[in-house]
Design a protein around this nucleic acid. Structure first.
Lengths: 102, 102
DNA sequence: GTAACGGTTCGACGCACATCGAACCGCCCG
DNA sequence: CGGGCGGTTCGATGTGCGTCGAACCGTTAC
């Protein structure tokens, strides 16, 4: 079971919104937007490894992130261009407010 | 238990995204954006009354819609201004792509 | 006053999800 | 080659959600 990424034209608004509609994942997306590509393990939010893996899978399968394998590491990045192409303005709107939390 | 609406400053991104992350509710929002204020019963998507009521409640409690009581009817409308104030561009982005579904 | 109608609430049910620990797999480094 | 590390997968568990029918409530109409 290789890492799956949905095609750009297969991105689904509902799925993306659902993926973004979780505090943990929203935080991950915010971090990826700010810091750029990250190694999976570098992102720790006080959750277990399995839960983290679960969220990354959810984001990836919704088409929000792209995962690149390099050795034992997984490099994760935002699919900014694809998201902007399918849902123009959406990511920006989410990030703009996500950047200013409380 | 009167109809509750969250204050504009209490709107939460995660909650809004979660509310929008459902096909039925997304369809309702799209309809409200296109047709303006609607009576609850005028919106039928092949779901039961109770399910419809449930979705309207979810949208309302997330701050996406405003419900106005008039006699036996409930008039529902989008909280466009409030959403734009809290999450500028978000609603537009969602509607723009939601307008072109399949 | 009584019936009909618009909506809500109440279980109930099934499903999906967030979370965890533990087991597992692949790769790298001694 | 063998151990450790980065990540995934596998149950298991609790919880929340979408859906329904049925019962209920307020208002309007007759």
């Amino acid at each position: 079971m290789d890492i799956f990424h949905p095609a750009t034209e297969d991105l689904d608004l509902t799925s993306v919104l659902q993926a973004l509609g979780d505090p943990m994942r929203l935080q991950i997306v915010r971090l990826l937007a700010g810091e750029g590509e990250q190694i999976c393990g570098a992102i720790d939010l006080g959750i277990s490894k399995s839960t983290r893996s679960h969220h990354f899978k959810a984001l990836r399968e919704a088409g929000v992130t792209f995962t690149r394998v390099e050795g034992t590491h997984r490099h994760v990045s935002l699919r900014r261009d694809d998201l902007d192409a399918c849902f123009p303005g959406l990511l920006d709107a989410v990030l703009q407010t996500a950047r200013v939390p409380a």
